[in-house]
Design a protein around this nucleic acid. Sequence first.
DNA 1: GCTGGGTTGTACCGATCGGTCTAAGGTGTA
DNA 2: TACACCTTAGACCGATCGGTACAACCCAGC
Lengths: 196, 196
Amino acid sequence: MSRTIAERPDAVLALANTFRLHGFEGASLSVISAETGLGKGSLYNFFPGGKEEMARAVLDEVNTWFRTRVYEPLVAPGEPGTRIAEMFEAAASYFESRDLVCLFGAFALGQERERFAAAIREYFVEWIAALETALARAGHGPQRSHDLAIDTVSGIQGALVISRALGETEAFRASLTRLHARITRPSSNDDTGDVR
Amino acid sequence: MSRTIAERPDAVLALANTFRLHGFEGASLSVISAETGLGKGSLYNFFPGGKEEMARAVLDEVNTWFRTRVYEPLVAPGEPGTRIAEMFEAAASYFESRDLVCLFGAFALGQERERFAAAIREYFVEWIAALETALARAGHGPQRSHDLAIDTVSGIQGALVISRALGETEAFRASLTRLHARITRPSSNDDTGDVR
DNA sequence: GCTGGGTTGTACCGATCGGTCTAAGGTGTA
DNA sequence: TACACCTTAGACCGATCGGTACAACCCAGC
């Protein structure tokens, strides 16, 4: 009993790696069983809903991680520029330590999209909203804060795609550095209806 | 005989839709057969290498399309700014008419990456190289042309991810418009280490 | 030691996978 | 019209899919 409740979170972490490596369809139960070290019996004991519940648990865990480690710090009191810098650092180290795979991004492009549409949408909506708040606090106008937030989150996803496609891990951090520079150092493009 | 050579290209077009809709793993032979209207016999007659050869034929067709319709026009003689504008229009209408799916981007994020790594890499390398050339002709320094080309192609991929994740098709064109504005109207950011 | 409830590995299920093969059907040439 | 050829549909193959069932197992409380 006491072991059970302590082990499901561990299983979720292992599952996250497996889904990142193989995708949803590619992660067969035999693969999952092998990589988590859990038999099917244990897996269906933890996740009665089967593979779909496993994936939902993983997405939920990731979303929670971002919420507490990225979105909430982003809108917490403090210098907005610093908060944003921390967001870039958190995102960079998170994805670098996970083979440059964002499960939500991968699911959004794959056939997993319909099944997990709500969770995928929530993840990006929350991220964009938090960044938009921080950007507005940093002095950008509402419209520009919104656009910049979308473009930045979008840019991070694009950097993941390109870096993986080119097989150049280090290109990812370079892209993030440029994305960061774009929104910290206000450019002359900033004239889009903004007072700063 | 004469029908055979005329029908394989048609099959490739149908296959492209199927792979876009279901992904590589999700496109089972029964699904492929149903959506293309071809029996397994016909499919293996056209593509003896099976599903993998079907996917390679599709990737090849898409890559050829971009090469002739995007990359080559991009570096053809003419006003670089106009060429770049045409690239954005071609990319926007291409992806809009295909459910905002870039097969190469989707494959890069999925488990198809290893199998088709070379084709995926080639697609993005060619695109970035052509855009970099056009940007340099438009007056950007070499380093900045390179960075801008990467950021723009990356930005398009990110826009596909975000637009699909949010379920907002129209957001895609808006993102592309902003990406375009960024590289046409030279900003004060332009001073970023170009001299080297 | 027992015993009993919860946890586990695994045999097994029907369905479906990618791929093979063959017999029927269609086509072009004479 | 008749023949030779080739395309085609679909039955069939072993393997594996996601999921279920169940028997062996572990370890508290007595």
